[in-house]
Design a protein around this nucleic acid. Sequence first.
DNA 1: GAGCGGACTTGAAATGTTTCAATGGGCGTG
DNA 2: CACGCCCATTGAAACATTTCAAGTCCGCTC
Lengths: 344, 344
Amino acid sequence: MKPRNGRAPSVKDVAAAAGVSLGTVSNVLNRPSVVSATTRERVERAMAELGFVRNESARQLRAGTSRALAYVMLDGGNPFFHDVAEGIETAAEAADLSLFVCNSNSRSDREAKHIDRLVQQRVQGILITPVDPDAAHLAEIAQRGIPFVLVDRFSRSGGHCSVAVDDVLGGRIAVEHLIDRGHRRVAFVGGPSSIGQVRERLQGARAVWAEFGMPEEDLIHLPTEALTVNEGRSAGERLAGLPSRRRPTAAFCANDLLALGLLQHAVTAGLRVPGDLAIVGFDDIDFAAAAAVPLTSVRQPRQELGRTAARLVLDEATNPDHVHEQATFVPALVARASTGTVRR
Amino acid sequence: MKPRNGRAPSVKDVAAAAGVSLGTVSNVLNRPSVVSATTRERVERAMAELGFVRNESARQLRAGTSRALAYVMLDGGNPFFHDVAEGIETAAEAADLSLFVCNSNSRSDREAKHIDRLVQQRVQGILITPVDPDAAHLAEIAQRGIPFVLVDRFSRSGGHCSVAVDDVLGGRIAVEHLIDRGHRRVAFVGGPSSIGQVRERLQGARAVWAEFGMPEEDLIHLPTEALTVNEGRSAGERLAGLPSRRRPTAAFCANDLLALGLLQHAVTAGLRVPGDLAIVGFDDIDFAAAAAVPLTSVRQPRQELGRTAARLVLDEATNPDHVHEQATFVPALVARASTGTVRR
DNA sequence: GAGCGGACTTGAAATGTTTCAATGGGCGTG
DNA sequence: CACGCCCATTGAAACATTTCAAGTCCGCTC
């Protein structure tokens, strides 16, 4: 490799070094089959010697198309989103695209900023788990004609693709499992209810509760400010503070982070899990199975969620006959020790 | 906003709509102060009407400089790296740069592919926690003149900046803490030893063990294949399989994921933690504190690691007098319940 | 030996910005 | 009224690539 002289070598430099024209170098790069073996080799040697690397900006500017997809995730601290991102990356890799992963950290302004940049980059498509699925800046993406898929959220309008799990059903199977195990007083831990997921999981829980003829007041909603471990702990405190006649024997948490926090508080407070308090989480992140008392959880097919979302966005990007699709997955209960015993 | 007609509007379209020249539109974008209030307003209105978004490729091509930094992380499944990424993002945001986060997942080929793409994108700088700090493709980045910082690894050669924690010291304080708590037989859980971190933490552990005059064979190395929860569990099995005279009363794990796996196995096997087995982890990820038995861990200043790395890479990118720097942070023990009691 | 066809290669245009020297217009000053 | 100055705007060049119509060369056939 030649010593750096400040400027990165361009196709022009390569062409000069190899004694061919610009067009030929470009052909070596993009249609190697049309150039003869001997020139190709000469050009490739020149590239190696100069340390040539194609300038993607210029390529993109001329070709008009970028080689990247983007995923804007809601909470980088929640492993669930990582697993989704892995699924997307798998699909992107297969399509020979880069994936830019951004993290909005549940902040709408950060989300908007990321989107802005991605649109400026002219990414081929945007996958997003939004802070608010009805936000104006989302509609703008679609209007702009950028392929775009909601991940882990439903599209109310049908104006774009979405990929999600049936959360109402998820709530149902979680609570049905608890009823099955003999619990007659159950807490639902989760909030804020501005999050659609939370509302729907609670709705499913209430529906099945009623169907089993249980009194409404025995399904207690413990609201939280966010879906984090910390909030789970604090919910634990509130739960412990309830008068014992009203205290639930089981809790269904809106996600695994809450459940882990609640579990920790319970253990610290000397409660046995599941003896004194059974716990069900949601998402089935790896840490759920790895908790000191392995956590029963409602599994979402995380990787597949990501792969499907990527498939949809690519279809929208390349297929002129694309029709928007709302992919729905069915959640499944994974029973573990945290709900292990049947109450007498 | 006008209806889409296929092509995204360019500065040329905006100029035409506003009745000004190209240059003026560009000035509105880049040096708003030099253009008069009335024209600026007219141009801005035209932009809004047309839904104009600057084409970043073209900007970058002409300006010669990108507006992005990249972090290639080693293991997206480990929250530690997330926290580092958050630190980097904070700094990037302050400098008004985008951050591309890539995940090599400990695979050298994926790492190389990511780097390749980043170089093609002409990112301003690359931060990386590499699979192998001596890999050839790392040296190439530097040769190419791209600012570049090793994160959570030491630069042996000094040919670039690095940001890391003193792992030998980390190993020392972990084991000293255990000795302090009265443990006389301790396991070191971690591997593969191709990872520098693992070697150094073990080295620190051995050093302090010897200094306290403990017999070498009572510090038992339980090697693992990776630093994951699963490997922690399997180490737990091997540990339980040891004859009781040789079985350690405490384990120091090379990271928190291992420690969480080990903790889980111990609890499942009916061991009390810390009564029967004390556990110390490393990194102090949030899940460590959130474990059912809160985990004692050696804390690394994760966010600060990231912020410092970003600072260094930006300095290298902008300051002609930049000198490479090896930033070293001091780890600190965070004692929690998993090592709670003093053995008589 | 003229003509033809195929295999490679060339050269120029085009992509959407930024930059910067040059231009124009208005206004105050002498 | 001429001059000079300043402010705002303009127009063209430059960035590194891709694309594609046109060109060159070569060997083969009749």
